[in-house]
Write a protein that binds this DNA or RNA. Structure first.
Lengths: 187, 187
DNA sequence: TGTTCTTGACAAACAGTGTTCGTTAGCTAT
DNA sequence: ATAGCTAACGAACACTGTTTGTCAAGAACA
């Protein structure tokens, strides 16, 4: 996905780049199509597997992994307003799970939006932390590590803690969102 | 920011593109520098203005507006691991606010990360909804509006509700995050 | 059968992009 | 005076998405 271009797609199809414009209006549209195709892989656990909360978490984790598996795809999820059939399917499933948790439908609508936005953003962050630019990461760690204890006591006290946790941090964030959504009625 | 290129920057400085590489290693590095400079505009409310919660929300809203004011900048915030002085300042301020709310420092570290990630993602979403591609938005609205009531009853029942709320939705999401963070201890 | 009309396909060109290379000018230190 | 270093710059490389004009095949209609 990162490094995908119309010319490469065309070459793989043994044709020229301009020929693709018959089927696709735009590069962005191609991106959206690829995204929705990948979203077809997202598995939503069946009804009898655990309670709604763990099923919701499993579905979102599956969504996150599908995005993370293709470098650059998470950015696409943040750059387009997805409306493909697989995205509709997933949205409907998440709405259903939240309603099983006793949530009103209008609040569930905003909650699904929030959960998907966060999961996409998290996948994107994980994505561009890997490989891409080890230099920037090391520079950031140094910049935050060697900070004056007087001016920034909290950051100094935390140290490397600011970059800790990969999977556990995602799990925690998901719990934060679900708890928050349950405890915050819509205005 | 969208449409910013090394050549245009160089032209504005009456020089060639290659000359910029003396001061900047990369386009990404230039982006990071621009981001941190803009982050200097973020206002963090003084100690005596209201309680910690409303001050936290005001600071994050200021961060969000600073990103949204420049098209494309929110994407930059999601694509880099920011480590400039202004970002350090903001992080320290947010950590302090959360600690005033009685939160342990290690939980506050993850909370700040989550709050900033969400706010950046929200700004990015708002950003590419505007102007950019009205076609995609209308297509999404049509795709979700004309969905079969049998296969996707929840989405059908919601209708245009899925795209409602701009400012109120952000305020709600912020409350969700703060409530969630307060109610979810670190593992 | 002959003639339009439409659709898919493609090469070439346009207007850009980030980045690298080789070379110059100016300013110190030795 | 010589050497070394830094900033600067033009040109080129290897790409990118998109538009334009042209061409062939098939369908619809007379």
């Amino acid at each position: 996905m990162a490094g995908l271009s119309l010319r490469k797609v065309a070459a793989a199809l043994d044709t020229g780049a301009a020929s693709l414009y018959v089927y696709v209006a735009n590069l962005d549209e191609l991106h959206a199509l690829v995204l929705d195709r990948v979203l077809g892989e997202v598995v939503t656990p069946p009804q009898q597997d655990g309670d709604w909360r763990s099923r919701l978490k499993a579905a979102l984790r599956s969504y996150s992994e599908a995005l993370y598996a293709r470098p650059g795809l998470a950015q696409v999820a943040l750059s387009t307003i997805p409306s493909g059939p697989n995205m509709v399917e997933l949205t409907e499933c998440l709405l259903d799970l939240l309603q099983q948790g006793g949530m009103e439908l209008d609040r569930a609508a905003w909650a699904v939006d929030l959960l998907l936005l966060h999961t996409s953003a998290f996948a994107a962050e994980r994505d561009n932390r890997r490989g891409d630019d080890k230099v920037a990461l090391r520079r950031a760690q140094e910049a935050l590590g060697s900070v004056s204890p007087e001016k920034h006591p909290h950051i100094h006290a935390l140290g490397a803690e600011l970059f800790s946790g990969e999977q556990s941090r995602y799990d925690w964030a998901l719990d934060v969102l679900i708890n928050g959504v349950l405890n915050t009625p819509r205005p």
